[in-house]
Amino acid sequence: MSANHHYGVQKALIVIACVMLGACSSVTSGMSSSAVNPVNWITPYKVDVIQGNFVSKEQVEQLQAGMTRDQVKALMGTPLMASLFHADRWDYVFTLKRQGVEPQSFKYTVYFKADQLERFEGDAMPSEAEFISKLTNQRKLGAVPPLEATEEQLNKAAAKAPATAPSPSLAAASEPAAPTAYPPLESPKQ
């Protein structure tokens, strides 16, 4: 083979490689870059992050003007933010971050005047049932089997039981009776 012919084959291969690379870049420009990158195909597990005090709709409905600070704390819990500069204001902040779901944030503020609840305001809080439904796993594992045995299953189990098993009255008679008084756990002080 002549040197010119060999040189021509190299040129043709370089041109074909450049055309192929150009075609690849035009195909991938229509796709998102994360779909092309194999590293992004596998997503690591991200833990659900729940921060702050969950305040339910039911708790908010129990708030009444005139309650003391202790009553509010017993009802709603310790506030997440209580500022020295705003001693008459408590902020209850709650955030929920889950994988694949937009982060949710709730804020509720209570205002005091002379240690009495004056007013309260904030976001519309979810009920306890709504909050629990947000925490449940999206995976459905199938139907839960019945947890009670049918009469037929009980009869089958009784038929399979060994016939040599002692009856409960005989087993109780052979064992010593449980003591009615127990010794003290600690020795008496001397």
Score class of each variant (00 low, 15 high):
K140G: 00
D123K: 08
Q153S: 12
L147S: 09
A114C: 00
D123S: 11
D123G: 02
L154E: 14
P168D: 12
A149G: 14
E148K: 11
A114S: 11
M125G: 01
L141M: 00
P145I: 08
L154H: 10
F112L: 04
F112W: 05
E148W: 10
S167T: 15
A149W: 09
Q116W: 04
E118I: 01
A157I: 14
E118G: 07
P126N: 10
N155F: 13
V144E: 10
E121H: 09
V144N: 06
K156L: 15
F120W: 06
A124L: 04
T150R: 05
V144H: 09
Q153N: 08
K160G: 14
E152L: 07
G122E: 02
A165Q: 14
F131V: 02
L117G: 02
Q138T: 15
A157D: 06
L135E: 04
L147V: 09
A157L: 13
K134Y: 08
E121F: 05
A157T: 01
P162N: 15
A129P: 00
K156A: 14
L117H: 02
P146K: 13
R119D: 02
Q138V: 09
L117W: 03
E130V: 05
E151F: 04
F112T: 12
Q138P: 14
L141P: 01
A124R: 11
K113C: 05
A159I: 00
T136P: 03
R139N: 12
D123N: 06
K160Q: 15
L141T: 00
E151I: 06
R139H: 13
K134H: 12
R119H: 01
A158Y: 05
G122F: 01
D115L: 09
V144F: 12
E130P: 06
T136R: 14
E121I: 13
Q116T: 09
F112G: 01
P126C: 08
D123E: 07
S127D: 05
E152N: 03
A143Q: 08
K156S: 10
L147Q: 10
L117R: 08
M125I: 07
Q153G: 11
E118R: 09
L154K: 14
E130D: 11
A157W: 04
F120L: 01
Q153L: 06
Q138M: 11
A163H: 08
A157R: 07
E152W: 00
K140Y: 12
V144I: 12
P162V: 02
D123H: 08
A143R: 08
A124P: 04
S133H: 07
N137K: 13
K140D: 09
K160L: 15
T150A: 01
S133W: 04
D123C: 04
A158E: 07
K140P: 02
E152C: 00
E128Y: 05
Q153R: 11
A124I: 12
I132W: 01
A114F: 12
V144Q: 12
E130N: 03
K134L: 15
R119K: 13
E118S: 15
S167A: 14
E151S: 06
P162Y: 06
E130Q: 10
K156N: 07
Q153E: 15
F131A: 01
K134E: 05
P146F: 03
P126R: 03
A158F: 03
E148M: 13
A129G: 00
I132H: 12
E118W: 10
L154G: 08
A159D: 14
A158M: 13
P168G: 10
P126W: 10
F120Q: 04
D115H: 11
